[in-house]
């Protein structure tokens, strides 16, 4: 758990692990229930025939954002006790590109590959093998290849609103507008695809 109970010492590490375990079960269950263990669903974002992933992730982000922000203002939860990482924009950009490539080639994200492996999909097990190879490959070549890259574009802990010089509330409102607009655009895009595809294609893609 990243916050706020654990950093305040209100939970001991064992309970923290237990809560993590329970949240993990819920997360995996819902990933499967939403069909995210289907590789076509994830790849669909990139081809444009399925906007589910975008919608789910944006909804989750916006819900968490609004919930935390409003509850902080009401004095319920101290957001400053939660964790957010430092920004290294060049390293993140390159890492994001690699991850995106992995997404579209493999059809899983690290989380969904584990869920899919649990449902017995062989391609997911192969994907996890690839993840492991990547991790160990990174570890053993870290000093020679990656050490410099890792610190590139260092910006410290950045808050976008502060960086832009606007109030946090305004930024949040703009972000909500942006995500709602993206729902709309992706939905249109998906509908356009559906009209183009034949019945068999739709069944094949699991739409």
């Amino acid at each position: 758990m990243i916050g706020p109970l654990y950093p305040q010492g209100l939970l001991n590490p064992e309970y923290n692990l237990l809560i993590g375990f329970l949240i993990g079960i819920g997360f995996g269950f819902l990933l499967e229930a939403a069909g995210f263990t289907n590789t076509r669903k994830l790849a669909g974002v990139f081809y444009g025939y399925d906007a589910t992933v975008i919608k789910v992730f944006f909804t989750a982000a916006v819900t968490a954002l609004l919930g935390l922000f409003i509850m902080h203002n009401m004095g319920i939860i101290d957001v400053t006790l939660t964790f957010y990482p430092k920004t290294f924009w060049i390293a993140t950009l390159i890492g994001g590109a690699i991850m995106g490539l992995g997404f579209i080639i493999g059809g899983f994200c690290p989380g969904t590959s584990l869920s899919a492996a649990a449902t017995g999909k062989i391609d997911a097990w192969v994907f996890i093998g690839g993840v492991m190879l990547g991790i160990f490959g990174f570890i053993f070549t870290y000093e020679s290849l990656w050490e410099k890259l890792r610190g590139m574009g260092k910006m410290g802990k950045v808050d976008i609103a502060q960086w832009l010089g606007i109030r946090e509330g305004i930024f949040i409102f703009l972000f909500v507008l942006l995500s709602v607009a993206s729902f709309y655009v992706f939905q249109k895009w998906q509908d356009a695809w559906k009209n183009k595809l034949s019945k068999e294609d739709i069944d094949e893609l699991g739409l």
């Binding site: 909804t59 916006v62 101290d78 609103a161 509330g169 305004i170 949040i172 409102f173 909500v176 709602v180």
Partner: peptide, 22 residues
């Protein structure tokens, strides 16, 4: 409905203060 709730929350956020430590 969901989009409505999110938009409402976003609108309310405009009037709230920045997040400072308690």
């Amino acid at each position: 409905i969901i989009i409505g709730i999110l938009l409402l929350g976003g609108f309310v956020s405009i009037f709230l203060n920045d997040m400072l430590p308690y």
